[in-house]
Design a protein around this nucleic acid. Structure first.
Lengths: 344, 344
DNA sequence: ATAATTTGCGCAAACGATGTCGGGAACGTT
DNA sequence: AACGTTCCCGACATCGTTTGCGCAAATTAT
């Protein structure tokens, strides 16, 4: 089935394209009979308006752009699912871009999205992104923008994030309550909002229980698969080595687990391990991994909803706000105490 | 920075838009000096051609569409990475659509992609897709199409697939050689090419070792998270229950592992388990999972390369072929023999 | 010196749809 | 009968870009 245009309908019915156009949308000044004819003909020809032409004219493209660090990441792929679900049943299409954690690519992605005339933009910042001028430009062009997960404090926009402070606090508190005293914190780039919030939660829990914050137990970075091992070695060589690891991301949790196992460090006998992760196989790992779960799908859904609300009610500005979603601490074997282990 | 058009350059230089257009794409009939001026001006204004307008004109959009069942799947998200990598450094953008395993949505995705004037389409079929007329239409419109992983025999197009037969054969042979005789095969929808090929590999291995193919050990379907358990129960109640499970997908492998553990069936003492999976934590599971690995990223890369080759050399048709990529059998604890277990 | 060719560039149409403007027909009003 | 309204609808410009055609000036050939 070929693709018909408004012209085909016009020719078929012997009327002008303008009439067809108006009949098809704003019904205001068109003879009902004519309208019926047009509708019927459009139906018959299976007419679909050309989104490209619509975009050129500057009207809504009914597409939203999603720019995030990478898809091959449990958290983000689940978030995309949430976004897609909402977008789909509100009649929007989703165009996904990966920044691959590169500022340069993020920039290119934003430009692409803008020139493809998306109606709005949903973003989670790349880890390289320190400057957000490119996003300010988006706002200046009056294109709705919603940030999720990796957000920037410098932008006055709606944000949807997990309760990172609360999650980190709960995880750290749990470790402390299970008898750990030297808790290493492996985390990502220090300038990211989520990093700072999680660090704050970690420190707050330490403080609550009168434990000193020890800088030497912290490690920041974007760890590749082979970098976690050396870091663990480094930490374990400390005069007073850690008895627990709290990691701030999916990849770190898995990398850390792997590194600890390779080094014959037993979990949780030698060290505890807990991570922020959305890994759906966390309970099938050896040992089952305690985690702080962020509801990724829900975050995606909420972000998409806010964005589309903004798109559709562009006139009266919707309130800017930061939506914080609770995280959930799930305790599994990787953070058991030795006495708990014995009972098994 | 606002967005400038070819007109702005024309006005700036006091020449016509045609000249600017031709200068920009290096047409022969333009004064080198003028060309230089235009180039310089475009550079200065940070001119970017409007992809929408280009698409409207029918020329290349330098975007390729990717339609696949779902992103939140280890195999597909890795494949996307491969696709993106190639596309990016050949100057193409990738627009991703998820069919969510629904034929209807796949159809809508194809239409969307076409109306967004992608230069080519990369697809892996939804599990509901039995009829491929919508793809034949794509071909009829002369839009390059490359299928990967889930392909259809009815379409005469380039396909990139893993060696499903070989992988299934190797997995089954390995199970047999480790002493298993009643090998259950849990697989996906029967009409998919990959299902058939894997089944064929499984049967071939059985035959080679003189084992009878037993229909009652087979299970087809799209198993939700809670459906694998009952199926396992069902199988284990057989008069002669399976002593090994060979699963055909990521999700099935994990679901099966979970179900077996919940039922206190020990792996590999009670039953062996091996799966087709791209799970990158397979060796961290309990027990470490033997798998047939399909090089997902490589599949994505090859598919993207073939597609872009086709796009760029549209005139002389490139040969249609099916690229088969070897799979790799990785043996871990989940398929050990009891004697091997003892040695540990 | 004149004719023929080449060179460099502009005009206008086209892609598909929308929207502004204005005009013809049919009606009602004095 | 002349005018004002209303109702429908078409011509045309527009979005940003490419492209066929044509035209003037510059160059070459005769």
């Amino acid at each position: 089935m070929e693709t018909f245009t408004i012209k085909d309908i016009a020719r078929e019915l012997g009327i002008s394209t303008s009439t067809v156009s108006r009949a098809l949308r704003g019904s205001y000044e068109i003879n009902p009979e004519t309208k019926r004819l047009v509708m019927e003909c459009a139906e018959r020809l299976n007419y679909r308006p050309n989104p490209i032409a619509l975009s050129l004219k500057g009207s809504a493209s009914r597409a939203i752009g999603v720019i995030l660090p990478q898809i091959a990441n449990y958290f983000f792929s689940q978030a995309i699912n949430g976004i897609e679900a909402i977008a789909y049943n509100r009649g929007y299409h989703v165009i996904i871009f990966q920044s691959q954690e590169s500022y340069e690519r993020e920039l290119a992605n934003v430009q692409q999205a803008m020139s493809r005339k998306v109606d709005g933009l949903l973003m989670s910042l790349s880890s390289e992104t320190a400057d957000v001028a490119h996003l300010q430009e988006v706002l200046d062009k009056n294109v709705p923008l919603v940030l999720f997960d990796r957000v920037s404090a410098e932008l006055h926009v709606t944000k949807v994030v997990a309760d990172n402070f609360g999650g980190a606090f709960a995880a750290t508190e749990h470790l402390i309550q299970s008898g750990r005293k030297r808790i290493a914190h492996l985390t990502i780039q220090p300038w990211l909002s989520i990093t700072q919030e999680r660090l704050a939660g970690y420190r707050a829990a330490l403080e609550k229980y009168g434990l000193e914050f020890d800088e030497s137990l912290m490690r920041y970075g974007s760890f590749g698969p082979d970098e976690v091992g050396p870091m663990v070695d480094d930490l374990m060589r400390l005069p007073s080595p850690p008895d627990a690891f709290f990691t701030a991301s999916d990849r770190l949790a898995v990398g850390c687990l792997q590194a600890l196992r390779q080094r014959n460090l037993h979990i949780p006998e030698d060290v505890s391990l807990i991570g922020f992760t959305n890994l759906n196989v966390a309970d099938l790992l050896a040992p089952p991994l305690s985690t702080v779960v962020q509801p990724a799908q829900e975050i995606g859904q909420l972000a998409a909803e806010r964005l589309i609300d903004q798109i559709e009610r562009k006139h009266r500005a919707l309130p800017i706000e930061t939506v914080k979603i609770p995280t959930e601490l799930i305790v599994r074997s990787s953070t058991m105490t030795n006495s708990e282990m014995v009972k098994l």
